[in-house]
Design a protein around this nucleic acid. Structure first.
Lengths: 207, 207
DNA sequence: CTGAATTTGTGAATTTTTTCACAAACTATT
DNA sequence: AATAGTTTGTGAAAAAATTCACAAATTCAG
C-alpha cells in the first residue's frame, strides 16, 4: 500500500501533472473535484486517473469526488514537493542562463542554489542572485550542501565528463539538456530533455 | 511496409535518437554498425533497435550490421529531416529568448524564422538575427511562409489563447513549454516539455 | 572452400500500461 | 427514508510495448 517504490514511473509523472491542475483549482477555491473533471483537465482518461490515485490510498468520496486540498496534500507529500529541494545547474551558456532565470522551478519547490561553469567569469553578465562558480569548486560544494539533484546544460562533448564528476560527488538525479546519451550507474536517475528530438518528433507527424 | 503512419510514436522518438548517434559515427568515418553497438550508444536494447528499424524496411547485413550512411539516410528521409523546416517561436521571455539563441535547432534541420511576442519592443535587447514581431502579425506571417510548426514559451495564462490562434492559422505541430495542458484539435499534435515536472519526477526517485 | 563466429529479422512470450465496466458507496432531493 | 443520480475503486480484459530466443544469412579466417 504505502510501499512507495512500487508506483510505476509513468504514474509518478502524471501525478505531477495532476498536482499542477490542482493548484489551479485551489486558486479558484474549488473544494471538490471528480476524477472525470480532473482527468479532463490533465488530459488523461478518468479511469487512469483513479488508477494512479489508488497508489496514494483511498480517500475519494463516492458520489462526490476528491477533496482538492487533501488530494493535493497526498500527491505532494508522496512526491516530496513540500520542502524546497536544492539543485545545482552546470553549464551557464544560452540554455543554462535561461534556466537560471526561469521562475518556474522555484515555484514548484526547487531552488537552484548555485551554478557552475568551466569559465565562470564569462557568465557574469547576469543580475541573478544565484552565484556562478568555477567547475573545480563543485565537489566540496555538493558535499557541503548535500545536493542530490543537478541540471546539466553543457555542450555535448563535455556532458559525460560532467556526469562522471557529479556522480562521484553523490548526485543521484540528473536532468540532462545535452543532446547526448549519458552513461551513468543504475542508481543514478537521468531524465533527458532533448529539444531537437522533440521538434523532430513533431515534424514527422506534420510531414 | 512503407505506410508511414503505422510507425508507433515511441519508435519515431527513438529513431531521432538513433539518428543523432549515427551523426557521431559518420563524423568518425565508421562505415558499419551492429544493432548491439548502436543500441548501447542509444541506451536501448538491441532487439528494440532492430524492431524499430524494421519499420524502415530490411537493409541490415546479417553477420555484419548496418551501413551507417544508409541507415542515416533511411531514418532521416522517414523523419523528413533532410530539408530545413521553418518554425516560429511565440513568447520571448526567459525561456523563449534562450531558445532563440539555442544553436541546437538549426543544427538538426529546423530554422526559427521569426519570433512573436505581445510586447516585442521589450525584447529587442538581443543581437539575434531573428526578427521579433508583435503577436497581431502572426496570422498573415504563418500563411505567407507556410509555417506548420510552432514553439510556444509564453506564460501559462496566455498559452491556451495562443494555441487557439496558431491552430486557426494552420499550425499542425506545437512544442509547448508552458506549464499547462493545452486543448487542441486531434489533428494538431502537441508535445509538452515541462521542466518542473521533469525535475519533480527525478526528485521522487531521489527521495 | 569449410566451418566457426556474427548479426539480422522476427514470431512468440512476456511485461507493462491502459481501458473497460460495474458493484459498492455516497450524495442530494423530495 | 426512499429513490434517483453520481462517482469511486478495482478486478478483469485489452492493448501496447518490450524482450526473448533462434533460424537464416552472412562474414571472415585459415
Amino acid at each position: 500500500m504505502t510501499s512507495r517504490l512500487k508506483i510505476p514511473r509513468k504514474s509518478i509523472y502524471r501525478l505531477s501533472v495532476y498536482s499542477r491542475c490542482l493548484n489551479r483549482l485551489l486558486d479558484n477555491h474549488v473544494e471538490t473535484v471528480s476524477s472525470d473533471t480532473l482527468a479532463k483537465a490533465a488530459g488523461v482518461k478518468p479511469a487512469q486517473l483513479r488508477k494512479d490515485l489508488t497508489y496514494l490510498g483511498n480517500f475519494g468520496r463516492r458520489g462526490l469526488g476528491y477533496n482538492v486540498a487533501e488530494l493535493w496534500q497526498r500527491i505532494n507529500s508522496t512526491m516530496g514537493t513540500n520542502r524546497l529541494l536544492p539543485v545545482v545547474l552546470v553549464g551557464v551558456g544560452n540554455l543554462g542562463s535561461a534556466l537560471l532565470s526561469y521562475q518556474g522551478f522555484a515555484k514548484e519547490g526547487f531552488e537552484i542554489i548555485a551554478a557552475f561553469d568551466a569559465e565562470p567569469e564569462r557568465r557574469r553578465h547576469r543580475q541573478s542572485a544565484i552565484p556562478i562558480y568555477d567547475m573545480n569548486r563543485i565537489g566540496p560544494f555538493l558535499k557541503a550542501n548535500k545536493v542530490k539533484l543537478a541540471i546539466i546544460a553543457v555542450p555535448a562533448e563535455a556532458a559525460q565528463e560532467v556526469v562522471n564528476r557529479l556522480v562521484s560527488h553523490g548526485i543521484q538525479g540528473i536532468l540532462n539538456f545535452s543532446p547526448l546519451l549519458l552513461q551513468s550507474p543504475p542508481d543514478v536517475m537521468v531524465n533527458n530533455v532533448n529539444l531537437a528530438i522533440e521538434l523532430e518528433n513533431l515534424a514527422y507527424f506534420v510531414r
